[in-house]
Amino acid sequence: MINERLRAAAMAAAVVAVGFVGYALGTWSGPAGSPAAAETPVVEDPPAAPAPAAGTGRDALTPTEIAIARELAVDAALRAETTDVTGAPGPELLSVALAGGDGPRRAAVLLYDYRDDRLIKRVIDLAGRAVAGSFSATDRQPPPTEREVTTATDLLWADPAAKLLRERFHTATGRDLTARSDVEVEAQTVPDGTGAAAACGAHRCLMLLPRPRDAAYLDLTDLVIDLSTRTVVQR
């Protein structure tokens, strides 16, 4: 009887000791299944600082500077005498980048006028909020925008020449091409052309680079999308 009482007292003391250590270390969870009495606090990253309105030196343009440059580059007069890739009034915005040179920060805005097939460059004085220079040239074809690639893809998809895309897709994958989402499309501009595509270079033309999700790029180098005339040219 005495031994049993001693064993019971020893066990109770052990439980108390373990509980005390767990409590001291912040790990005691109480009865089975109950939440911990002390948990490690969750440390969250501090919120990101807001982007500055204006950059300094040769830093990349801030979102605010890009918005200012885009707004100032296309005034009412330019909008009235130009069209974009969809045929709507105003030039197609190609890019906005930090202009070179020392002095005040300036942005170079590249635009394309589909009415006259000319590339327009406007230099924006960001501090003065004014157009510091305006230039235009023909036969200049910078890389295409995402909207131009989408427009070119739309034109091909609606053209009889799309059968070549379907045939090459089937050859590469063994499946039928049934939806636009079956291929990812990139593109590059055609700086000059010959034969049926001789107008390319003066016109804004794209060569599409379609790629199925599980195959390599498909060869469509024999097709050119003339965005200026909105036609598909086979060469």
Results as ranks from 00 to 15, higher is better:
residue 212 P to H: 00
residue 67 A to D: 13
residue 22 G to V: 04
residue 56 T to G: 08
residue 72 L to V: 03
residue 77 A to I: 08
residue 147 R to E: 11
residue 35 P to W: 04
residue 217 Y to E: 13
residue 46 P to H: 10
residue 50 P to W: 06
residue 164 L to T: 11
residue 2 I to P: 08
residue 234 Q to K: 15
residue 8 A to H: 10
residue 139 D to C: 12
residue 127 A to M: 11
residue 218 L to C: 02
residue 230 R to A: 15
residue 92 E to L: 00
residue 233 V to F: 00
residue 228 S to P: 00
residue 220 L to C: 10
residue 8 A to T: 12
residue 194 T to A: 10
residue 109 V to H: 05
residue 36 A to S: 12
residue 12 A to W: 02
residue 190 V to R: 00
residue 215 A to S: 13
residue 120 I to K: 00
residue 128 G to V: 09
residue 33 G to E: 12
residue 120 I to L: 15
residue 87 G to C: 03
residue 74 V to H: 04
residue 120 I to T: 01
residue 235 R to Q: 15
residue 7 R to A: 12
residue 161 A to Q: 13
residue 212 P to I: 01
residue 206 L to T: 02
residue 223 L to N: 02
residue 94 L to E: 05
residue 80 A to F: 02
residue 136 S to L: 11
residue 150 T to V: 12
residue 56 T to A: 09
residue 180 R to P: 04
residue 73 A to C: 06
residue 131 V to I: 15
residue 64 T to I: 07
residue 85 V to G: 00
residue 61 L to H: 01
residue 103 G to R: 08
residue 202 A to N: 11
residue 79 R to L: 07
residue 203 H to F: 02
residue 138 T to Q: 15
residue 221 T to G: 13
residue 49 A to L: 13
residue 129 R to H: 08
residue 46 P to S: 15
residue 166 R to F: 09
residue 180 R to N: 07
residue 234 Q to H: 14
residue 28 W to R: 09
residue 213 R to Q: 12
residue 13 A to L: 12
residue 45 D to T: 15
residue 31 P to V: 11
residue 174 G to W: 02
residue 226 D to C: 07
residue 8 A to P: 08
residue 131 V to D: 11
residue 233 V to Q: 02
residue 187 A to N: 03
residue 214 D to V: 09
residue 88 A to I: 07
residue 79 R to P: 05
residue 116 D to S: 14
residue 206 L to S: 01
residue 72 L to C: 05
residue 220 L to R: 07
residue 124 I to N: 00
residue 109 V to Q: 09
residue 194 T to Y: 12
residue 180 R to S: 11
residue 59 D to S: 09
residue 188 Q to L: 07
residue 72 L to D: 03
residue 196 A to Y: 08
residue 1 M to I: 08
residue 146 E to F: 08
residue 4 E to L: 13
residue 223 L to C: 03
residue 83 T to Q: 05
residue 215 A to I: 04
residue 142 P to I: 09
residue 91 P to N: 10
residue 78 L to F: 03
residue 156 L to N: 04
residue 203 H to I: 07
residue 176 D to A: 14
residue 191 P to N: 06
residue 189 T to N: 07
residue 75 D to I: 02
residue 211 R to T: 12
residue 124 I to P: 03
residue 147 R to A: 12
residue 162 A to C: 12
residue 190 V to C: 01
residue 164 L to R: 13
residue 84 D to I: 01
residue 121 K to V: 11
residue 214 D to N: 14
residue 59 D to C: 04
residue 116 D to Q: 13
residue 36 A to P: 07
residue 187 A to C: 05
residue 89 P to I: 11
residue 199 A to F: 01
residue 29 S to T: 14
residue 69 A to G: 10
residue 102 D to K: 13
residue 19 G to Q: 14
residue 167 E to I: 09
residue 205 C to R: 00
residue 32 A to I: 09
residue 42 V to N: 11
residue 13 A to C: 10
residue 81 E to I: 11
residue 204 R to Y: 05
residue 105 R to M: 01
residue 195 G to H: 05
residue 107 A to V: 04
residue 180 R to Y: 04
residue 89 P to A: 13
residue 158 A to N: 14
residue 124 I to H: 01
residue 114 Y to N: 03
